[in-house]
Design a protein around this nucleic acid. Sequence first.
DNA 1: CAGGATTTTGCAAACGATAGCAACAACAAT
DNA 2: ATTGTTGTTGCTATCGTTTGCAAAATCCTG
Lengths: 323, 323
Amino acid sequence: MAKLAGVSAATVSRALADSELISSKTRKRIQELAQAVGYTVNPAARTLRTRQSHTIALILPLGHEKSQHLSDPFFMVMLAYLADEVSQRGYNLLLRRIEPQQDAWLKQIIASSRVDGVLVIGQSDQAAVLQEVGSSYEPMVVWGQWSSGQSYVSVGADNISGGRLAAEHLLNRGRKRLAFLGNTDVPEFAARYEGFKTMLPPEIYEAHVLVPTHLTAQDAFSAAAQLLVEHPDIDGVFAASDVVAMSVIQAAAAGGRRVPQDISVIGFDDVPIAAQSNPPLTSIRQDLEEGAKLMCELLFRRMKGETCSSVRLPPELVVRDSA
Amino acid sequence: MAKLAGVSAATVSRALADSELISSKTRKRIQELAQAVGYTVNPAARTLRTRQSHTIALILPLGHEKSQHLSDPFFMVMLAYLADEVSQRGYNLLLRRIEPQQDAWLKQIIASSRVDGVLVIGQSDQAAVLQEVGSSYEPMVVWGQWSSGQSYVSVGADNISGGRLAAEHLLNRGRKRLAFLGNTDVPEFAARYEGFKTMLPPEIYEAHVLVPTHLTAQDAFSAAAQLLVEHPDIDGVFAASDVVAMSVIQAAAAGGRRVPQDISVIGFDDVPIAAQSNPPLTSIRQDLEEGAKLMCELLFRRMKGETCSSVRLPPELVVRDSA
DNA sequence: CAGGATTTTGCAAACGATAGCAACAACAAT
DNA sequence: ATTGTTGTTGCTATCGTTTGCAAAATCCTG
């Protein structure tokens, strides 16, 4: 208690809050003293009193993938940007991985009043939970596929047009026998597949293959290897993520196929390693930096009680060597 | 306040804490009631009273690299494992990226008493700060290079012997003109380089090249490209991390060099994408899962006041196709 | 059934900060 | 000198828990 330095606790509190109520000279004196003795306000007490935790929860629902996932480059890039944005605003980031057993998880986090706002990365298979919470709880922003009628604010790439871009590019490359690798249980990936399908001419559509796979490198590798054996005439692959695309390339190499001569591979996300893979990956880019900025901006606006609407970011085709 | 349900606040508190002081039937009744009305204890109040936040700070000092870094797969893999371990113990993870301006950052975090313990990933160039804090503050565990006389507990791979393994392997492959790519300002990387050098016979030692580079894909790529131009006879590269190694492979491909026929490349870490790169990466593996487990275990033991000593984990050579 | 031993519960004081209100000082105006 | 105005500061209640201690309720035993 820095009140041992002359004044009352109230004065100290106000001085450190830079309140105009305190004369500038005592204010400065107290601030310097606090600095000198290394005094910091106790955040728990402050939170208790002001009902503001200055903390944002970052939630990663892992409904569809038990393991891995967090180490997917997409997550880490997103997380890095979000961490920056949030801490720039002087808030803390509380990290939570969720493996939803019961549906109460979100409500509990909110009810515990430990956080002032919630960021969710990927709706996974938890759309119902988000929908319910979203209608009554404002300070929440979700990264993911937008769907009409959703009660919560979301930010995400327009996955459908992303899928279209991918299909278009493969067709432009003269590819005829196409495959999509991904987990269509997840809304984002389902939308990518939807957009992809809409661009295919009938005869190519008939012949295309959907390969369900989890978004881990291992799963994708074996799924791709199996695909290449069962459908040796496949000459174009749209992967639901860059990690999957890299696994496809590796499986192709293992099966004696050259990329892009024998088979074109296009990924999604355009994470940093996409440019560093061999061959460099052609990918559908989502601007995660922009996305993270938007998420935070919307979140803080909602925290102030403003209303704001969801945003869909236009994805972009980045052509490198793999397709 | 669930005390509207018959009893006093004290009784509720004790019932929810499963205290033996409360008769089992009222205890059960209150617990079920709390469940039903969705009551959760206010963590701020509890923290204020008990002086325990049930929160662990995870700190990423970015002294040596302004940007990127967090999105390095190494960090994310580590973070994923640590998040698991910490939440398994019922604790929260508070994430902090630090770009040290002044040396007080660590003290401030600790003094704010927001956290019960601190995990630091990588000492970066902050060894002095850690050293000072470590001597008086127990609940802190650092991932990084061990050095004799350090005041804090650390967990980390034995980077020196890791460097030796890499050198040994390149020599076994018959490579004569070697290079190390990495930032030797960081203790971990410096140790890798040290170990590497000790294994080189005099004539190879004389001819080897140290290429300073930041640990980002972009920097490493241009550093590698430049190296291959300036020293076209280089036939073996030890990269300080897998991301750097992938950039080297890409630069080699861009320069018309084949890996591993013309040039051997060996990485460090063995992150998941190492196996997925093309060609699959030979790497020095550090067992990050084991490391994360150890860090948490030691941290919680220190939080209980036990003393325990630092751990150095033996790294392991994983041979794939790149070297 | 009294009295002691033993559960079971409630009272009240913290924990450290914030904010409404009142008090006090300083100063100007009448 | 009295009053009013403005600028500073202190008093005190409060946020929601936990916990030592005391009170009340229950049980046991002679």
